[in-house]
């Protein structure tokens, strides 16, 4: 990567390598490949939807790692219509 590439704000390929590595290692260490995580997400949505209305498109499930602790992080926004109804009621 040369001076001009940096000026244009291009990402060093080493940074891309590091990011990809970190992601793949999180999945390796948890023994939960991305495809399985997707299946888990679908199951989770199906289960939650039986109880509460959620904004399916914005659901975000991911694996994270800080030091030695692996974490499954789920961000599940509720459906906007329901939130409004509850607020109005």
């Amino acid at each position: 990567m040369n001076f001009f590439e940096r000026l244009r704000g291009e990402r060093p390929s080493a940074q891309t390598a590091k990011d990809r590595l970190q992601l793949v290692l999180v999945h390796d260490r948890a023994d939960l490949p991305p495809g399985k995580l997707e299946a888990l997400k679908d199951d989770l949505i199906a289960t939650l939807s039986r109880h509460i209305e959620i904004d399916v498109r914005k659901v975000n499930i991911s694996l994270t790692q800080d030091r030695h602790q692996q974490r499954l992080v789920a961000d599940i926004p509720l459906a906007p219509s329901r939130a409004r109804r509850r607020g109005a009621g």
Partner: peptide, 18 residues
């Protein structure tokens, strides 16, 4: 290559492997 940002540095590797 490390200087150019085109190869993982030893620091990068130690960051992910601990």
């Amino acid at each position: 290559m490390v200087k150019r940002g085109d190869m993982l540095s030893t620091g990068d590797i130690l960051d992910v492997l601990a």
